[in-house]
Design a protein around this nucleic acid. Structure first.
Lengths: 205, 205
DNA sequence: AGAATAGCTGAGCTATTGCTCACAATAGTG
DNA sequence: CACTATTGTGAGCAATAGCTCAGCTATTCT
């Protein structure tokens, strides 16, 4: 990474345990505050207040507000919440089962803190670097799914790349909606229909 | 409408032509500024500057910043850009043709100013009233599609309501993505796959 | 223990933004 | 032209936000 954005790097590295703890408190508080107030109204002072540390301490570990949210997003990605689909490669199974696993992963990824995820995705002023990281992650996932699709005997679809894009995005967005604002329809029902749609599409009639 | 939000109503009604013109300039400028800078960074002063009117004039026709974006959204809805699907009821045709029409409408609705639409949808701090208006509009559309689906002989799907929700949202979001950030895949190809997916789903195998 | 290092504090600086208001300019009216 | 109603102006106010820094406390080192 030659072009790591300086404005997202911490200005001081924690060397003592209590420092690491403070850093942790900041991130936890930020997650809560952003969830409750949104990004714009989630001020750094509010975060510090909630973390029960001074505003000065906050700025010793994060150079600016954006960096806090960036860190939260990075964590979310790194934690593999978006990457757990790797195991799909190992267990082919029915086409339907595969799609079900995809949807389940998406749901899992969103059940942790749907509100925060929404804010990170929709409200965050993502930096070049961060956008690229998210994008890179997306490309990797797409590539994985593309491979999976091209290997599966039941998949009959024009272009596997386009199909991978289409179904990943469709699953992601529908899940997102499902988790962010619980509708009248039960989750299982909606998820089932989603699986149906994607499966039928991939099977090509 | 008994509970029209006062904070979104103009404080002065234009009575002369030049006033109406000024109002128009403000809205046009706002659309440009919001598109270019986003909602938060699209300041009222910037809007006034771009409209070549003073900031004071701006606040004679719009009580606050939110009201400007609200007006833009209302216009977008009223213009029927989201409602042109009505004609679908009149021309049943093939299931595939119907879905194609739906996708086409969605694309049309987004081609005008995808960036601005994104901002209105994602960044705008929508008021209660406005949210309700958008929601009401959504429900009407869903109801229309539900009727359409239940009348169509080729549709074989568990619950028509869930299906209507699912396909409307899927079409909307995919189109949104398609228009907001042009991908490597040509629009027609992607749209075609989207139509395929929805059609196969509705046909139930 | 004393020095050095790391960590923490919070009043307040700087910058920005939404918005007001006293006044000026223009258009309509008789 | 004189008078009123409508429209336009822009310096600047009030509020708020991100962020700094001089000094304090806690921990580690020797």
């Amino acid at each position: 990474m030659p072009s790591a954005d300086r404005r997202l790097q911490p200005r001081r590295k924690p060397r003592q345990v209590r420092a690491e703890l403070t850093r942790e408190r900041i991130l936890t508080a930020a997650a809560h505050v952003f969830t409750e107030y949104g990004y714009a109204a989630g001020t750094t002072n509010r975060i510090a207040e909630r973390a029960r540390i001074s505003i000065g301490s906050l700025y010793q570990y994060f150079p600016n507000k954006d960096a806090i949210l960036a860190q939260l997003l990075i964590r979310h990605i790194d934690r593999g919440t978006w990457t757990e689909a790797d195991r799909l490669d190992l267990s082919p199974g029915t086409l339907r089962e595969t799609v079900q696993a995809l949807v389940r992963d998406a749901i899992d990824s969103h059940s942790e803190d749907p509100q925060l995820l929404r804010i990170m995705i929709e409200e965050a002023p993502l930096s070049r670097d961060l956008l690229e990281a998210v994008d890179r992650h997306g490309r990797i996932r797409t590539a994985q799914i593309r491979d999976l699709l091209s290997r599966h005997p039941d998949v009959r679809v024009g272009d596997v790349g386009t199909a991978a894009d289409l179904i990943l995005f469709t699953i992601e967005m529908n899940t997102h909606k499902l988790m962010a604002a619980p509708s009248a329809v039960p989750v299982e029902t909606f998820a089932g229909e989603l699986v149906d749609m994607v499966t039928r599409y991939l099977r090509g009639d």
